[in-house]
Design a protein around this nucleic acid. Structure first.
Length: 486
RNA sequence: CGGGGCGUAGCGCAGUCCGGUUAGCGCACCUGCUUUGGGAGCAGGGGGCCGCAGGUUCGAAUCCUGCCGCCCCGACCA
C-alpha cells in the first residue's frame, strides 16, 4: 500500500478521498460543498471534454452558451421540473453590498433587492426553452442541436469530491425536433455516445437502460441512462439522456409551422455528463497504490525515469525516446529531478496513475535495453533499444483493453439474478441484482426502504421473461437491474 | 438536515479528561556529508492566530457558549 492511502478493503470511502487528494486531483475548498479541481484533475476532465466534444460535433451538434442566472418565474413554468429542482436552488436576491454603518464590514444592501429573484441554474432547460421560442419559427429551423459546456449549482445536503458537489462542471445538450420519433432517436443516440465514450475511452463498462418513473429526470417523458459498477459494487449513474416530449415546448410555447403551414409544438431532448465521470473513472480502475488512468484519458501517458539519477548519457537516450514517442502522438514526461531516488519516483508516478513508466539505467544501457513498466499490473519488461516506440504504442492499446476487460469481468462477476427475497437482499451486498418487479412505484419505494437499493434501470437488452415480483409476488414480464447507488 | 466521530506545522498524530514554564513527535522541507536499480542514513536547522468568534480565569490547545469545516451512518440527489 502506498503511503497515506487507506486500503479499499479497510475503508472504501476514505480510500476514494485519499486517491483524489494524494493524486492531486482536487481539494475541498473554503466554500461548503464546493471543490477546487487541481491541475491534474482538470487535465483529465479536459481530455474527457475534448473527446466528448468531438463526438457531439461529429453528430451535428454545435456549442453555445446560456446565462448562469435564471429568472425565478421560468423555473415554475414546467410543473414537474420545478418540483424536482426547487429544493436545491441557490437564489440571488440582491445585487449590491455596502459598508456596515458601524464600519465593521460588508452587508447586503437592503436597498438593492431584485424585483425578481434569480436562480443559479441547476440545469438550463427553462432559460434555453425560453430562448428557443425566438429561434424556432419554421420546420426549416429544425432540428436544433445545441450543447453547452457550463457549471451548474445544486445545493446538495451531502457532498463528495467529484461525485456530488454543490457546483459542478458538465455539458448539457438541448435539442428540438419536428417529430416525436426523431427526438426519441436523438435521446437514444446520445445515450449510445455516452456508452461508447465510457467504454472505449474511460474503459468503464456500462449498462444501458431506461429509468423508472420515480428515477427519471424532472420534466422528462423518458430518461435513458448508463450505469457503471464501482469497485465496492455500488452503481454510479454516469450519464443521462432525456426524451422530454412536448413538456417544455408547451411550457414555453415553442411552436413551428410545418410544411402544411400548420402550427405544432416541437419535440425535445436534453442530455448531460458531468465531472462526476472523474469520480467514476477513479472508482473503476484505481488500486491501493493510487490512481489508475486508462491511456486514452491520461494527461501524461509515459514517464521516463533516469536510474539512479539523470546524467548526460542517460538523458540523451531519454530525450531521443521522448521525441520518438511524441512523434507517434504519445504524451511523455521526462523526470529531471536529480534529488529524489528512483524508488520514490516509482511510487509517486504510480500514485498519479501514469500508464507506462520507462526506467533508463546505466546497467540496462550497457546491455542495450530499457525497462518498461505498466501501471495497471505493475509488470516490468526489458525491451531492446530501438524497439521501444512500437512496444509502447502497442502496450498503451493493451492497457486500455485490459482495463476494460478487467472492469467488465468484475461487473459481470458481481451481477447476479435473484428470484427469492432472501437471495435478493444477500446479493445486493455483492453488486447489481437482476430481478423481477411488478412495475409499480409503490413496490419500488418499499424495496428501497427495506434494502437501500433502487432500480438503476430497465436494461435496453431486457429479455422477455415471465416471473413474479421479488417483493409483491405480482406478475412481471422482465427483469430490471437493482443496486445501491452513489 | 438528524445521529456519531474529528479539527494542534504541508501531511499524519500525541497532548485536552484533571488549566500552569518556551506546545511535542513522525513524515515532508532547508544545509552539509555519506548514499543512490522500489518511498536512503547521520548531523544541524526553519516552520504553529492549537478550526473561528466570544466568555470564565492571575493564566486557556485544555473549561463554557456559539459558529464553521471534514469524515462515517441515515433522509435527498448527476
Amino acid at each position: 500500500m502506498a503511503k497515506g492511502i487507506s486500503s479499499r478493503a479497510d475503508n472504501y470511502a476514505q480510500w476514494y478521498v485519499d486517491i483524489v487528494k494524494k493524486a492531486g486531483l482536487a481539494d475541498h475548498s473554503a466554500v461548503r460543498g464546493c471543490m477546487v479541481i487541481k491541475p491534474h484533475g482538470f487535465a483529465i476532465w479536459e481530455k474527457m471534454q475534448a473527446q466528448l466534444d468531438r463526438m457531439f460535433k461529429e453528430t451535428g451538434h454545435v456549442n453555445a452558451y446560456f446565462p448562469l442566472f435564471i429568472p425565478k418565474s421560468f423555473l415554475s413554468r414546467e410543473a414537474e421540473h420545478v418540483e424536482g429542482f426547487a429544493k436545491e436552488c441557490a437564489v440571488v436576491t440582491h445585487y449590491r453590498l455596502k459598508q456596515n454603518d458601524d464600519g465593521t464590514g460588508l452587508i447586503v444592501d437592503p436597498e438593492a433587492k431584485l424585483e425578481e429573484e434569480l436562480i443559479v441554474r441547476p440545469t438550463s432547460e427553462t432559460i434555453i426553452w425560453n430562448t428557443y421560442k425566438d429561434w424556432i419559427k419554421s420546420y426549416r429551423d429544425l432540428p436544433l442541436l445545441v450543447n453547452q459546456w457550463a457549471n451548474v449549482v445544486r445545493w446538495e445536503m451531502r457532498t463528495r469530491l467529484f461525485l456530488r458537489t454543490a457546483e459542478f462542471l458538465w455539458q448539457e445538450g438541448h435539442t428540438a425536433h419536428s417529430s416525436k420519433q426523431e427526438a426519441i432517436e436523438e435521446a437514444l443516440q446520445m445515450q449510445e455516445i455516452y456508452a461508447t465514450f465510457a467504454e472505449e475511452y474511460m474503459a468503464m463498462p456500462v449498462i444501458r437502460g431506461r429509468k423508472t418513473t420515480s428515477e427519471r429526470f424532472a420534466g422528462a417523458v423518458d430518461t435513458y441512462t448508463i450505469e457503471a459498477m464501482m469497485q465496492d459494487g455500488k452503481a454510479l449513474q454516469a450519464g443521462t439522456s432525456h426524451f422530454l416530449g412536448q413538456n417544455f415546448a408547451k411550457a414555453f410555447d415553442v411552436k413551428y409551422l410545418n410544411e402544411e403551414n400548420r402550427e405544432e409544438y416541437v419535440w425535445a431532448t436534453s442530455w448531460g455528463v458531468s465531472t462526476r465521470l472523474v469520480g467514476g473513472l477513479i472508482m473503476t480502475h484505481s488500486d491501493d497504490d493510487g490512481l489508475v488512468v486508462p491511456p486514452k484519458l491520461a494527461p501524461t501517458q509515459v514517464v521516463i525515469v533516469p536510474i539512479p539519477k539523470p546524467n548526460p548519457e542517460i538523458m540523451e537516450v531519454a530525450e531521443r525516446i521522448a521525441a520518438e514517442l511524441k512523434g507517434k502522438g504519445i504524451s511523455v514526461k521526462i523526470d529531471h529531478d536529480p534529488k529524489k531516488r528512483p524508488g520514490y519516483k516509482f511510487a509517486e508516478y504510480e500514485l498519479q496513475g501514469i500508464p507506462v513508466r520507462i526506467g533508463i539505467g546505466k546497467r540496462d544501457l550497457e546491455k542495450g535495453q530499457i525497462e518498461i513498466a505498466r501501471r495497471d499490473t505493475k509488470e516490468k519488461t526489458m525491451v531492446d533499444l530501438g524497439q521501444e516506440a512500437n512496444y509502447i504504442s502497442a502496450l498503451l492499446d493493451t492497457i486500455q483493453q485490459d482495463l476494460f476487460a478487467k472492469a467488465l469481468a468484475f461487473q459481470r462477476a458481481r451481477t447476479n439474478r435473484a428470484d427469492t427475497w432472501e437471495d435478493f437482499t444477500r446479493l445486493l451486498d455483492e453488486g447489481f441484482v437482476s430481478a423481477h418487479w411488478d412495475g409499480t412505484s409503490e413496490t419500488e419505494a418499499q424495496i428501497k426502504a427495506k434494502t437501500k437499493a433502487t432500480i438503476r434501470c430497465i436494461p435496453n437488452d431486457q429479455e422477455a421473461e415471465k416471473g413474479t415480483c421479488i417483493l409483491s409476488g405480482a406478475p412481471s414480464t422482465g427483469r430490471v437491474l437493482f443496486a445501491r447507488a452513489y
